[in-house]
């Protein structure tokens, strides 16, 4: 009986493959898995963030809702679904409604090229790294859109700060990624992992790795670079006017972005899915969550930078160092080869 069902499934699968093609099918199934994964990941990360914050501040964090408070973020999410969606009168409503959707959609695209394991990747295209950074740029655009459409001075100021910060920090981010690309000779994510056969790139490129982590923290608008939503100056930054699940989408996008920058850092500098004993995907996830834990640690330990300090740090120190690093890497690679 069970054999018959299996045969039937195989027939159906073959028919589907013949009809749609294997690539399209993998893409569709991958997208469904990604959508589920993004939610679960965000739920886990928000819970982790509150627990880490609690323990760093000598508190316990969420504890009463479910064992160790694990149901806390689910409860928060359902509550956000049940809240009123306020669209204030003076907003330009189309942009206002589009912005949270647009901040969330490009985040999904990056998952297509993330190498979770030696075979666990939806599509290994040869410009994978560039795809991630290109779609990361849309994020900034939608934040500006939301801030502007809100017609609120705090939201607009937060959005402007976010754009200025992202423009400044994307350059060292890309330059440090470029020095890895110069070493590996490919933009494909799987190719970069394969180039780290013996030694992780963090040992060849410690400066680029550090610059990438700093830039990634700034890219995701997290403390000490969280001036776009500095609570003491701007009420809540660009999402001041957003309520309910629209705000929830911004939240979701922020935590998924954190996962993506950590995953890219893992791929570029920490050997991707490589590691002993355990299968590839486990190592990938372990490395990613260790990096995310580091980012959270930084957030709850350091105070917020002032805006001029932030810009000076990016333009006067990080970009020259990243350029120099890229130049030296290129020279050495030319001499070695």
């Amino acid at each position: 009986m069970s054999d018959g069902i299996l045969v039937d499934l195989r027939v159906i699968w073959e028919a589907l493959v013949r009809f749609f093609g294997l690539e399209a099918l993998v893409l569709v199934i991958g997208l469904v898995v990604i959508l589920a994964w993004v939610q679960v990941n965000a739920l886990f990360l928000v819970w982790l963030e509150r627990k880490v914050a609690g323990h760093i501040q000598l508190r316990i964090g969420p504890k009463e809702v479910g064992p160790f408070g694990v149901l806390q973020t689910i409860v928060d999410g359902i509550k956000l679904l049940g809240k009123e969606l306020i669209t204030p009168q003076p907003v330009s409503w189309l942009l206002f409604i589009l912005s949270p959707i647009m901040v969330f959609t490009p985040v999904l695209v990056a998952f297509v090229v993330l190498p979770f394991g030696p075979h666990l990747i939806i599509r290994d295209i040869n410009v994978g790294l560039m795809l991630i950074f290109a779609f990361g740029g849309i994020n900034v655009l939608s934040i500006l859109m939301g801030g502007w459409a809100s017609n609120n001075k705090y939201a607009l100021l937060g959005a402007i700060r976010s754009v200025a910060q992202n423009v400044a920090y994307e350059i060292p981010l890309l330059l440090s990624a470029m020095s890895v690309v110069v070493m590996s000779g490919t933009l494909s994510m799987q190719g970069i992992v394969e180039a780290q056969e013996g030694v992780w790139f963090i040992f060849y490129q410690p400066v680029a790795g550090l610059l990438y982590l700093i830039g990634a923290t700034a890219e995701t608008n997290r403390a000490p670079f969280d001036i776009p939503e500095a609570e003491s100056e701007l009420v809540a930054g660009f999402h001041t006017e957003y309520s309910g699940m629209r705000f929830g989408l911004f939240f979701l996008a922020e935590y998924t972005n954190m996962f993506i920058v950590a995953a890219v850092a893992t791929t570029l500098f920490f050997g991707g899915w490589r590691g002993p004993f355990l299968p590839g995907p486990w190592w990938f996830l372990i490395k990613v969550y260790i990096l995310i834990f580091g980012v959270m640690w930084v957030r709850w330990t350091f105070p917020r930078l002032r805006f001029d300090q932030l810009m000076n740090f990016a333009w006067k120190y990080m970009i020259p160092i990243a350029l120099l690093n890229l130049l030296v890497t290129a020279l050495v690679m030319k001499l070695v080869r």
């Binding site: 509150r50 000598l58 508190r59 316990i60 969420p62 009463e64 809702v65 009420v235 001041t240």
Partner: peptide, 19 residues
């Protein structure tokens, strides 16, 4: 710390009244 409203899920002090 020591009192920790966040235990009951009420520790997310939102700066914006909309949230």
């Amino acid at each position: 710390s020591r009192f920790d409203l966040d235990r009951f899920g009420a520790g997310v002090f939102r700066p914006s009244p909309r949230q």
